[in-house]
Amino acid sequence: MFGLPEKQLSFLLCASCDTLPTPMSLSRWNIITNPKCALCQTLQPTTNHILTRCSVALVQGCVTSVSPPTELSTSLSRPDLVLVSKDSIYLFVLTVTTNTQQHFLAARARKEDRYGSLLYDLQCTGLAVDLISIEIGCLGHFMPKTLAQVTTACCVSKKTVQSLFEQAARIAISCSYRIFNSRASPEWDLLDLLT
C-alpha cells in the first residue's frame, strides 16, 4: 500500500482498526487495569491522544496539534490541516473536483467563503494567517500556483511538494477509475478503492 515499509503498513492498519497496544486497548484486553498515558497521565488514552493530543508531547515538540486553536476562534469551520508557527497560521483545505480550471476556481471561492470567518477571527489575534486551498482534479490535474503556496508555507523543497502532488494525483486517478468501473453496480467495496 503506497509503497510503505511492512512495519509502517502494519502500524497504519492497526491504527485504523484501533488495535494498537495503547493503554486503552490494553485495558480493554484485560492486560492492564489502570490505563493512563505514560507522559501526561490522562486516563484511557486512545491512539488519537497519543499521536496528536498528549499535552506533554505537545510541549516537548514530539507532536504538533493539527486542530485549529479553538480559543482563538468560535468558528465551526475546520480545515483539513493547520500549521502553526510563532507568528503565522496556515490553514490547508483539500478538494477533489472536476478537471477544469473553472471548477478549480469555483472550489477555491467556496472554500474562501466557508473559511472567511475563521480567517478573520485568527487575523484579529495579530497573527499572519493564510488559507491554502488545494484542488486536485478527479483525473489528477492540479494548479501549478498551488505548488508554490504549499512549498512556501511548509518550508520544504519544490521537489518534495511536487512528489506529494503527484502521489495525490495518482490516488485521485485510481479512485476515479474504480468509481467509473463501478458505475453500474449498486454496491461496491470502498476498501477496494485504492487497490
Rank of each mutant, 00 (worst) to 15 (best):
C40I: 11
P186Q: 13
A107Y: 01
R183Y: 05
P45M: 09
A106E: 15
P144W: 03
L190Q: 06
L131A: 04
A57V: 10
A153R: 03
L51S: 11
Q8H: 12
M143R: 13
T70E: 02
T151E: 08
K7H: 14
P144R: 10
N34L: 08
L13A: 11
C40H: 08
S65R: 10
K36F: 10
P144D: 03
T19A: 07
C155Q: 14
R108K: 11
L131C: 01
V150F: 01
L72N: 05
S176W: 13
S176G: 15
I132P: 01
L191T: 07
S88V: 05
C17Y: 05
G3E: 11
T47K: 09
T47L: 12
Y115I: 00
K36Q: 15
C54T: 02
R78L: 10
L191P: 04
N30S: 09
D80N: 15
R53Y: 01
V84A: 08
C154N: 06
S185E: 15
T152I: 05
A107N: 06
L131R: 01
S182F: 07
D121C: 02
V161L: 09
G116H: 07
L9E: 06
S67P: 01
L94T: 10
H49Q: 11
S10N: 07
L43T: 14
R170N: 10
Q60D: 09
A38V: 06
L91K: 00
C155K: 14
E112C: 04
T195K: 14
D87G: 08
L94I: 14
P23Y: 05
A128W: 06
V56S: 12
T52F: 10
L119T: 02
